[in-house]
Design a protein around this nucleic acid. Structure first.
Lengths: 198, 198
DNA sequence: CTGGGATGTTAGTCACCATTAACGTAATCG
DNA sequence: CGATTACGTTAATGGTGACTAACATCCCAG
């Protein structure tokens, strides 16, 4: 009818491939430390061919971060609305973040390092999504611990993100099979402590 | 006799001033996102004047990271040799890292992001110091929990660093007076969980 | 067929940037 | 007093890198 099969599917494939390679490179050397040539080379095309898929280097980064933020936020909302209670929601949120951190270390790394290099139209939107994601956590924590001030819960949430996102640093120390429960236990315990200490 | 007052003191002052400004800029925009002009401008001199104090941009970064790694490592050693027992050592190590994270967020940020941009002579040395610092933690944890495999302790240590170094992200959420005990409690609890979970 | 869109390629172009050169100015020291 | 030293300044210079132009292919639709 309207959209034919090969154009639609191929376009998407290539774009995804580029985004993935770029994420790996950005995580390793930083946005400005990677050239268009580098990214093209990583997917077997060379240099300016990227402009057939993205309007520029900035747009590539914007789309990357926008995509990550949306996916995290959507997962959080899905989990929050489908869980029977706050305790289960927190558990599910932990699993979402842990899965993401273990399976997409490069994206997680870029996500919390490179916001400063995103140009202004997109930056605001990414910030908004990140804020909504944090608030999803804070809301659940507030349900579980109504006496704890929100600012404290927010700080604790950021600390837990730092803990979970440490995976890229300890890559190779432990297999994912062991890393996953370890992170879960540490994060859960850290959260408990954050609301219990007077 | 040998070193005169103004030269020694002034040289040091300017260098320190430059290092601090550069750390702030590197943390915000990444090593390659900051120009020599930017750094000079931030301390009131302009551009190539930097070469009176550092042999180049790379050397500036090298010195910055070398300095941070040494200071952390030295503090850890000092604390480990002067504490009565492993429990007190762990406590003191936590305080060292928390103080650093709260008082020097830019340095901490650069320290764990920009190692990849340090040229080879210095890189090895920085890595060495970082490794020694981690081992200081692992040694203490191993004394407290001899049954726990070292790989697990290492992974837990990295996770705790991630937790403590989250300060730059939650800047402003909470005053340092509250942040400090919060981080301490969360980290301590996370460590407990890391060795208790089977 | 055939014309056009999707996708690449290779040669500019233009800006930016690290680094060096050439050149002042104060203050210190002998 | 000189003269060296510490510190800056403003012009090159040379390289790199993002982006554009001009020019193929391939493949499908009409």
């Amino acid at each position: 009818m309207s959209t034919v099969t090969p154009p639609t599917r191929n376009r998407g494939k290539r774009r995804a491939e580029i985004l993935e390679a770029a994420a790996r490179l950005f995580a390793a050397r930083g946005f400005h430390g990677v050239s268009i040539e580098d990214i093209g080379g990583a997917v077997g095309i060379s240099g300016p061919a990227l402009y057939r898929h993205f309007s520029g280097k900035d747009a590539l980064l914007s789309e990357m971060l926008l995509d990550v933020s949306s996916r995290l936020r959507e997962s959080a909302v899905a989990v929050a609305t489908s869980s029977p209670g706050p305790a289960e929601t927190l558990d599910a949120l932990l699993n979402v973040q842990i899965t993401f951190a273990i399976e997409q270390p490069a994206l997680i790394t870029v996500h919390d390092r490179e916001l400063g290099n995103v140009p202004e139209p997109a930056r605001r939107q990414i910030r908004r999504l990140q804020r909504l994601y944090v608030e999803e956590w804070v809301t659940v924590l507030a349900e579980l611990h109504p006496a704890c001030p929100a600012a404290r819960l927010r700080a604790a949430t950021h600390a837990v993100f730092g803990l979970l996102n440490s995976t890229p640093h300890s890559a190779g120390e432990l297999p994912a099979r062991d890393m996953r429960p370890l992170l879960h236990a540490m994060a859960r315990s850290a959260i408990e402590a954050s609301v219990n200490t007077r």
